[in-house]
């Protein structure tokens, strides 16, 4: 249930008529949910140069899985997608899968533990650095475990609000870019007014202060009473998400434990 709510909450951020740079993994499902549940129309741009504006029958396993290419708007190259579209500021939103994210919205998709001697080696950047450098970035994290939310990530793959102690604007990142939200199984975090750190502004029903305190490696709540509650999705929305997840599973997606059951 919390995974479905997370996808629905993230999908609600996609603007009608917008241009959205979609990262690999959950962001692809988020884009599909936005079309199916909210009926949003928008352009999806991928780092390999694929541009699409409608739903494919099957859930693609990655942007390089061309079963979703048959009605594509464009087949460009990476330079066009990453720089001439995203870098030029043509995207309203960039959605990024964030396996490990810290209080400043820095994302680590490279390693768990020290870079030279990682306990777990992850995939690495791909275009994740560009999504964070050039995009207004919506981060999506499916994990509930505290290890996904340290105060500081061991390796900054994608730059957040504050990188190595300096504000991103001081480091040469274009103004108006950076994380705009972090969707987690507990709720939505947003940058605080000073754009220094991410704070929980909306929670899902049933999420407790203790659970929040035990999950995030920083004080992620100002006043608990100020945290809004995201309305529970209706049965129709949940059924559509379930159908999406069934399609994803049939194409070998590894879904969170709670969904697999």
């Amino acid at each position: 249930m919390s995974f479905a709510r997370m996808l629905l909450r993230a999908a609600a951020e996609i603007p009608e008529g917008g241009v959205v740079f979609v990262g690999f993994h959950w962001p692809m499902l988020v884009a599909r949910v936005a079309r199916r549940v909210y009926g949003r129309r928008f352009l999806e741009v991928y780092e390999n140069g694929v541009v699409v504006d409608r739903l494919s029958e099957e859930v693609p396993t990655s942007p390089c899985d061309f079963r979703f290419m048959d009605s594509a708007v464009a087949a460009l190259g990476s330079m066009e997608a990453l720089y001439l579209v995203l870098g030029r500021g043509r995207c309203d939103l960039a959605i990024l899968d964030a396996p490990i994210v810290d209080r400043h919205g820095n994302v680590d998709s490279t390693c768990v533990g020290p870079y030279r001697h990682p306990r777990v080696r992850l995939a690495g950047s791909g275009g994740a650095a560009e999504l964070g450098a050039f995009g207004r970035t919506l981060l999506v994290t499916s994990n509930r475990e505290a290890r996904s939310y340290p105060a500081q990530v061991p390796f900054v793959t994608t730059p957040g609000l504050v990188v190595g102690g300096a504000a991103r604007e001081e480091l040469g990142y274009p103004s108006g870019t950076g994380p705009v939200g972090l969707v987690t199984p507990l709720g939505m975090l947003r940058p605080d007014a000073g754009r220094r750190e991410l704070l929980l502004v909306e929670r899902f029903a049933g999420v407790s202060p203790d659970e929040v305190a035990a999950t995030f490696g920083w004080p992620a709540v100002g006043r608990w009473d100020d945290v809004a509650v995201w309305p529970e999705p209706d049965a129709e929305a949940l059924a559509l998400v379930d159908d999406e997840l069934a399609r994803a599973r049939s194409n070998f997606y590894r879904l969170p434990e709670e969904v697999v059951g």
């Binding site: 780092e47 990476s78 330079m79 990453l82 720089y83 870098g87 950047s125 791909g126 275009g127 994740a128 650095a129 560009e130 450098a133 050039f134 900054v156 793959t157 994608t158 730059p159 990188v163 190595g164 300096a166 991103r168 480091l171 040469g172 990142y173 274009p174």
Partner: peptide
């Protein structure tokens, strides 16, 4: 990063020594 990788190839392909790329400071 994939962007920097493509910019490096662009420089190589143009016969230039380097290319401006994604701001990556602090990463």
């Amino acid at each position: 990063s994939y962007g920097a990788f493509t910019c490096g190839l662009l420089a190589g392909g143009m016969g230039l020594p380097f290319m401006p790329t994604t701001p990556l400071m602090g990463t």
